[in-house]
């Protein structure tokens, strides 16, 4: 803790935070208080509490929950397996690389894959079943979103698992814990911070997903992100768009409070001891 000498070098950091984090948030709050003609109003906030936006908020949370849950179910075992492999950094890279490809490109690819004449339906027909409508369903939406978010879930969990001292697991086994008990009482609690980081990295962006909602779900799923996009680009009602954004920011803080507790002194990627 060399606090004194570092104060000066922190200045660029504070300027950065002020300009690119605090100022934009204040601007969003400011715009949320303006109506279409630029007059001060609280109407945007009362509008938000109409059934349309409340329903949208609920459905955003529901889909974000589903996406996070499935990502976690896929990522935890995957991350665990990777830590057991010989070339784990290589395997990790293989999982990370797809996240470098532009999100839109990946989404467009899925339009083809899920289409009536896509490979999945070709397979379905080959085994004698009738053609399935896959595109524009909840399944397609959650599937693509999970696919996109998996790297962000695997990475923190992998880091937490990788740093887990194997002696602890051996000790648990020696003391008679079954495999399942070891997982439940030792491994999962010790990697909880990795899970929390992963949940944060998936849940929060899921709340504001857009584009995929249109391309894959055909707007049958509408999230807060879609609504913001539409308010800014189509309706040009910046006030309402900002108001939704303010609520989104509030939700994010709440989620971070829930997933970020008990992290005193711990590094970001796990390892509480």
């Amino acid at each position: 803790m060399r606090r004194k000498g570092n104060l000066f070098s922190l200045i660029p950091y504070y300027i950065w935070i002020l300009l690119f984090v605090i100022a934009p948030i204040l601007l969003v709050v400011y715009y949320s208080l303006l109506d279409l003609n630029g007059h001060f109003t609280l109407n945007n906030y009362t509008n938000f509490f109409t059934s349309v936006y409340l329903k949208m908020t609920l459905s955003s949370f529901w889909y974000a929950f589903l996406i996070t849950l499935f990502s976690l179910f896929v990522s935890y075992p995957a991350a665990y397996l990777i830590t057991k492999l010989k070339h784990k950094q290589l395997w990790l890279i293989l999982i990370i690389i797809p996240s470098w490809i532009n999100l839109l490109l990946k989404t467009y690819a899925f339009i083809g894959i899920f289409g009536n004449k896509g490979p999945i339906n070709a397979f379905v027909q080959a085994i004698g079943l009738p053609n399935q409508q896959i595109l524009f369903t909840d399944f397609a939406f959650v599937f693509v979103a999970v696919y996109i978010f998996i790297p962000f879930m695997i990475l923190p969990i992998f880091n937490a698992l990788d740093k887990l001292n194997p002696a602890l697991i051996d000790a648990a086994r020696d003391l008679g814990a079954s495999k399942f008990t070891t997982l439940r009482r030792i491994i999962i609690p010790l990697t909880m911070n990795g899970i929390k980081s992963g949940v944060q990295a998936v849940f929060i962006p899921s709340l504001s997903l857009f584009m995929i909602t249109r391309l894959i779900a055909g707007n049958r799923v509408i999230t807060l992100g879609t609504a913001i996009e539409e308010q800014f680009l189509v309706t040009q009602n910046w006030g309402m768009g900002s108001t939704i954004a303010v609520f989104l920011i509030i939700f994010m803080f709440i989620i971070m409070l829930f997933t970020g507790e008990k992290r005193k002194g711990a590094s970001r990627h796990g390892k509480t001891q």
Binding site: G115, F136, R214, L215, G218, N219, R220
Partner: peptide, 14 residues
């Protein structure tokens, strides 16, 4: 079925 933009062209053609 869906509410989309220009992607509809390809879907209808196919």
């Amino acid at each position: 079925k869906a509410v989309i933009g220009d992607e509809v062209t390809q879907l209808m053609i196919n």
